[in-house]
Amino acid sequence: MGQGTSVTEPLLKVRGLGKHFASAGQTVNVLSGLELTLAPGESLALMGRSGSGKSTLLNILCGLEQPDAGFVSIAGEHFAADSSASGPNQQRWAMLRRQRIGVVFQEANLMPALSLLDNVRLRARLAGQSDQHCGDWLKRLGIGELTQRYPDQVSGGQRQRAALAMVFAMRPSLILADEPTGSLDVRTALEVADELFHQQAASGCALILATHDSALAARCGQRLDLAQMGA
């Protein structure tokens, strides 16, 4: 079980988190008694084999799934498992996702009918940020010349850079990245990871990165191996 060791006020605090699924008539515990603390600027690598609960944990940490036990505290908002699914809590989760939590998936992070720039603008505006610097974010991530292209007109690596630009344009407190380089070739994956860590460090936000890549995980300050949790 990983433990946060921050000296500043924690951004994320997870206590006794549990989640189970019913499968073929049996209950499968995916997460059980998980404890986790993460401060701003820190990074955590989530490791574990497929089905170990990495994506489930990320979904719980952004309120898209409800835990069965424990509680989550994030950016001063507290959510207990028994009340997490309630309407007001869903509203609070939505506000957190909109303004404080950026999520990057392995693929398909962009709206296909919008250009890269419009995607970034949409995400920034939803977060309540100005869309004036969206083009700059695309430039910083090395795809400044592709602002008017559509997602299907650029490569997979460029799409992931655009996804990172979207996340950073919203100025998040926490980034949840679910195998963001998993579908990219080694070189592109490295470039995208470089950008991710660079911008994360520069912005001072926290990062939780789910990955199978040990090298990538090694670049994070902390590491949590879900496979060892005996799920």
């Binding site: 952004c62 898209l64 869903q90 509203q91 939505a94 506000m95 957190l96 996702r97 909109r98 303004q99 999520v103 398909a108 992070n109 709206m111 296909p112 949409l122 995400r123 939803l126 977060a127």
Partner: peptide
């Protein structure tokens, strides 16, 4: 459906 879920991920409530 994925893109509508993206909107949810980006902070819109299910009702929105």
């Amino acid at each position: 459906a994925w893109y509508f879920r993206l909107l949810q991920v980006w902070g819109l409530t299910k009702r929105q």
